[in-house]
Amino acid sequence: MTLSTAGHRKIKKVLSVAWAEQTESKERQTWQACTMRRIRRIGPLNNHPGYFLQVGQKIWRLAPVACILIIALTAMVIHADFIPEDAVLTVFDYNMEELTLKQVVGL
C-alpha cells in the first residue's frame, strides 16, 4: 500500500523519540588512561607545516606576478605584429638545396 504523508509523519515522530533516547553506557575506568597512553606514545605534535606544504602555500603568492607577466607578454606580442602562421611559414621557407646539416641542427 501507499504510505500517506500523515502516516509517515506519525512513524517518523515515534522513531525520532526512540532515537533520541540515549542508552546510558558509562565508559570503562581504564578507557581514559588507555587513550592518554596512546596519545603519549604518539608524542608531541609537529606544529610546523612540512616543506612541500610551505612551498604550496607560498607559490600562490606569485600568482599575481605571473598574471601580470602573461598580460605584458601578450601585449608585447600584439604590439610587435606577430602572426604565428607567418612565423611557421618563415621557418619552412628555406631553400632545401642550400640547407646544410648545420642549419638543420640549428647551430
Binding site: 553506557s25 565508559e27 570503562r28 578507557w31 588507555c34 587513550t35 596512546r38 596519545i39 604518539i42
Partner: peptide
C-alpha cells in the same frame, strides 16, 4: 563499539 570509536575520535 562506543568505547573503541571514542578512542579513535580523540586520537
Amino acid at each position: 563499539e562506543v568505547e573503541d570509536v571514542a578512542h579513535d575520535v580523540f586520537i
